[in-house]
Structures are given as structure tokens and as C-alpha cells.
Amino acid sequence: MVETIYGCKWSLTVYQLLANGIKRPGEMVRSVEGLTTKVLNECLRKNVAFGIIERIAYNEIPPRVEYVVTPFGRKFIRILDDLDKLQKEIEFDR
């Protein structure tokens, strides 16, 4: 799971968008240059399957979908942040 998520450059971007309050897919695509709807949907699907984020569909017209980080996802993202810090320390020490 860690390899799949950490290896996907867009997952980390999605976590940052969610942390900044951007929860809707269309808004995510508009916020990040180079991010396509297809790639975003694939990334979101993987993260939902792993339980890192949750998809919330509202029964409205037009349909509205939002994504939020789950409690497990908050823990997981903290671990990824720690891995990033460790990687930077390793690179700095070389």
C-alpha cells in the first residue's frame, strides 16, 4: 500500500489539496496544472480502496461528490510526512 501510494505522484498532491480545503474533484483538476480527470479518478479510487480517503456523494441535482481524509488516512499521511523528512535528512547527510 505504501509503495502504491508513495509511488503515485498525484496522491501526495491530493492529500495537500484536501488539507487546503479543496474537496471536490473538479476543483482539484482546476487547481493543479497537468492533473487530468482520468488520472485523478484513478488516484481517488485507489485511496478510497485503501481507506485513506472517503467519498461522500450528496443526493442533489446536479450531483455533488466530495472527498475527505479518514482517521486512518490522517495517521497514514503523518507516516508519509515522516518518511519525507527522513529522506531529506538522508540526502542532506550525503
Rank of each mutant, 00 (worst) to 15 (best):
E3F: 12
E3L: 13
T4I: 15
Y6I: 15
Y6K: 14
Y6D: 12
G7S: 02
K9Y: 14
W10N: 12
L12K: 10
L12P: 01
T13N: 12
V14Q: 04
V14L: 04
V14Y: 02
L17I: 04
L17A: 07
L18N: 10
K23W: 06
K23D: 08
R24A: 12
R24P: 00
G26P: 09
V32P: 04
E33W: 06
G34K: 02
G34L: 05
T36G: 14
T37C: 07
K38C: 09
V39W: 11
V39F: 13
L40A: 02
N41T: 09
C43M: 02
L44N: 07
L44D: 03
K46D: 15
N47W: 03
N47M: 15
N47H: 09
V48D: 03
V48T: 09
V48F: 08
A49H: 14
A49I: 15
F50C: 10
G51V: 06
G51R: 07
G51Y: 06
I52C: 03
I52W: 11
E54I: 02
E54G: 00
I56L: 14
I56G: 01
I56A: 08
I56P: 00
A57I: 11
A57G: 01
Y58F: 13
N59F: 11
I61H: 12
I61W: 14
P62H: 05
P63L: 09
P63M: 04
P63C: 06
R64S: 09
R64F: 05
V65D: 01
V68F: 12
V68R: 15
V69E: 01
V69Q: 06
V69K: 02
T70Y: 03
T70G: 06
T70I: 07
T70F: 03
F72R: 11
G73L: 06
K75E: 13
K75Q: 13
F76V: 04
I77E: 03
I77M: 05
L80C: 07
L80W: 00
D81R: 04
D82Y: 12
D82G: 12
L83D: 02
K85T: 08
L86G: 00
L86C: 05
Q87W: 02
K88N: 13
E89H: 04
E89N: 04
E89G: 02
I90D: 00
I90E: 00
E91P: 03
F92E: 09
D93A: 14
R94T: 07
